[in-house]
Each structure stands twice: as structure tokens, then as C-alpha cells.
Design a protein around this nucleic acid. Sequence first.
DNA 1: AAGTAACCGTTACCTCAAGTAACACTTACC
DNA 2: GGTAAGTGTTACTTGAGGTAACGGTTACTT
Lengths: 227, 227
Amino acid sequence: MARTVKGPDARRERWKGHREQRRAEFVEATIAVVAKKGPDVGMEDVAAEAGVSKPVLYRHFTDKSDLYLAVGQKATEVLMERMGPALAAEGSIRDRITGIVDAYLSVIEENPNLYRFVVKGSFADRPVEKDVVAEDKNLIAATLARILGDYLRAFDMDSGGAEPWAHALVGMVQNAGDWWLERQTMSRANLSDYLATIIWHALDGLLRSAGVEIDPATPLTPLRLVD
Amino acid sequence: MARTVKGPDARRERWKGHREQRRAEFVEATIAVVAKKGPDVGMEDVAAEAGVSKPVLYRHFTDKSDLYLAVGQKATEVLMERMGPALAAEGSIRDRITGIVDAYLSVIEENPNLYRFVVKGSFADRPVEKDVVAEDKNLIAATLARILGDYLRAFDMDSGGAEPWAHALVGMVQNAGDWWLERQTMSRANLSDYLATIIWHALDGLLRSAGVEIDPATPLTPLRLVD
DNA sequence: AAGTAACCGTTACCTCAAGTAACACTTACC
DNA sequence: GGTAAGTGTTACTTGAGGTAACGGTTACTT
């Protein structure tokens, strides 16, 4: 009895969650070993950190770039979690922009090696197609583009520029952050403020040129969150 | 007679220029083979393209990253040559910004594989320290920072923001250009205009907040060229 | 109870690109 | 004629990514 109704064989289902969990475990191991030994770790190091030999690792990831990709996604997730509150926060626009930028900077400041691993160590050998960072940046940029587009449409403006805008903003913050991370010649708060100023002025100019006036101190209710 | 005054032995000097020329030759070969076979070429491919075997290549470059670096520098040189005129051009500020951005985009549009090789294929294996792209981006950013700083000082403004500004701008244009290059969903002119708009507004806002008013159509004599 | 589908894990190997050793020949300065 | 630079070759070493082949465990199926 029980289930003679059998789905395709319960032995197959038995592990469903387990595999996911195991992958996550290896991703954690990678992050740990990167934090310890710097961004130039190999598959063997990762396996060792997880207390296991290479083939086991390869049972869960087809490939180095597969692992790297997973790490990148995890990192993006962490990043998003940190930026989410800043995105949704109450307060003036100016302050919210600063908050978002600063959230980003604080994440890379706290995990410099992970950041380098994901951003620099990418491309996992051959295939330029399967770019690891690109995926993550695109995800972030897409999120941003959606938010921007919504706001533009809310003001009855052309939303065609939302995508280039989003990618421009992402690149701007990322590159400035990268520079800052390597030689820290100013405080984080300072940089956040500089970047937020640039963004704010650009945004203000854009709206102004469409005849929309906005006060930097206006709270401007969020249209929607990260979703 | 002649020169019994001997410098350290003329046999050493004899090749001085030659080595430089040879390096340049290999750099050209790399660029050629990358254009032909895509950004994922190995040392053997490069050597073959130059009609020579690997060890010869290694006589002139200590290392893969050494070659990559040289290629990056050459590419940066080309880029600078193309952006130079746009930097120095007469015309309104707005137009000049557009010109500079468009010059950049046109270069990556014409050499997509070289661009990918330099930007993505970087990091030449292990050493994250010796980052290939970073060098070039820093060079460009430094040039920009100098120009910006000079202008800011000319207006008696705090020039401390010039460096972050420069890195922000570089990242912005680079990332937007990257996105555009992969999926060309808008015309180059269109993107140039969007980016120039962002930059112009940011710049305008910065000056405005310091009480300086500037007309986008003002020619604004260049303080100095690339130098 | 026997079979089997999924996992656990190992050691020892293969592969391929980066980089090197060792060797031989050429040119022009000394 | 000696030698310091360069020209070039084939054949090797190295190291990291990735695989083969083996054996053990668990819990579902028959």
C-alpha cells in the first residue's frame, strides 16, 4: 500500500534537497578558503577545505566555472540582501542613493578576497561566453533597470534609457569601488557621498530636462521592492 | 681609434632597438590572431601566427601575462589616439563629451575580440596582483583625473573628488559599452548620447552646486591636451 | 531476501597549455 | 679567432583541471 501509485521511483526523489544542500556546502567551503588563502585557489584547495577529494567535488559541479558561477550567485545574493533594505528605506532620495552605494561598498570592504575572486578570477579558463561576473552584473543591472524604468514611466517619460542607465550605474559604482578597495585613499563614507552626488545630479538633470522637479529631500515612496 | 673610449661593449648595444621592434611584432601577431580566432588563444597560437616556435616568444616575454600586458598597453595606446582628438576638439562641452564617449565605443565596436581579450581574458592565470586591465583602466582614469582636477582647480573648487570621479566615469562607460557590445540593442549614437547626457548632468550639477553656471554650448577652451 | 538506484568516498591516472632545457647556427663587435 | 648577443629548433617538465575505475552504504523496489 502506502503509494503503489508510484511516481517514477522514490529512490530518485530521495535526495532532491540533499544535492542542493551539498552544493551550498561546497560554495561555503570555497568562500571560506578564499577568505583564508586569497582569491587564487584551485579545485584541490576547495575540496581539501571541504574535507574531501576532488572527484566528490566534481560530482556536484560539472566544472570549475560551474562552481565559480555558484559562488558568484551566492555572493550576489548576499549583496542583494544588504542592498535591499537600502533600496526600500524611507528617507530622502539623496540619502537612499547614498545608502545603496554605501551598502555595496561595505560588502566588498568586508569580503575583499571574495570580491576579487568573483570579479577578477572569473572567466574560469576558456569560455568567454560563460562569463561569471557578467551574469551577476546583469542581474543587478536588470533589477535596477526595472526600478528606473518604472519610475520613468510613472513620470510619463521615455523609459528606453533605463537599461543603459542601469549598466552605466553598475559599472560606475563597481569600478570606483574596485579602485577604492585596492588603494584606500579615502574613507568609505566619503566615496559613498561622492558617488551619490554624481548619481543624484545625473538623475536630477534627467528629470529636470523633462520638466519634472524633484527635491533631494522628498521621500518619494518606493514603487516596489526587489520583488 | 674610433671609440677606444668604449662604453660597456658595443655588442650589447647593437640590438637596443631591435628587441623593442620584435616585441611589437609579437604584439601585432597576437592582435591579428585574436581578431581571427577569437579571444581564447594560447601562446602556441601566437607563436604560430608570428611564424615561430614558443621558445622564441618566451625570449621576448617572460610570461603570458607579460605578453598580455603589452597587448593591453598597445590597445590602450590605440584607444588614446582615437580619444585624443575628441578630448582636444573645439565645440560645446556637451558635444565634446559625446565625442569622447563615441570614440571609445567606436574602438571597441571595431575590435570586439581584442576588447574581449584584453578585458575578459585578463588576469593571465594566477597573479591577481598583476592585473592587466587594471593597469590600463588606471592609466585612462589617471589622465581623466588630471584633466578634471585641473578644471576644478581652475574654478577654485575642491579637487579631491577628481580621482573617484574619474574612476566612476571610466567604469560607467566601460560597463555600458560592454553591455552594448554583447547585445547591441541600440545604435551606437544613441548610447553615446545617453551616456553623454548622464555625464553632462552630473558635471553640471557638480559645478552648479559650487555656484558655477555653465552653458552646455560654451566652447570652454581646453586647459591642456593629453600631454 | 535479493536487487538496484542513488549517494558516499578513495587512489591513480589522463590531458593540455604554460613554460624550460639543451642544442645548433648566424652576425658583428673585439 | 673569440665571444656576446641574437636566430631558431625539438623535446621535455610541470601543474591544475578533469576522469576512470574501484569499493562501500543506504533505503527503496520486487
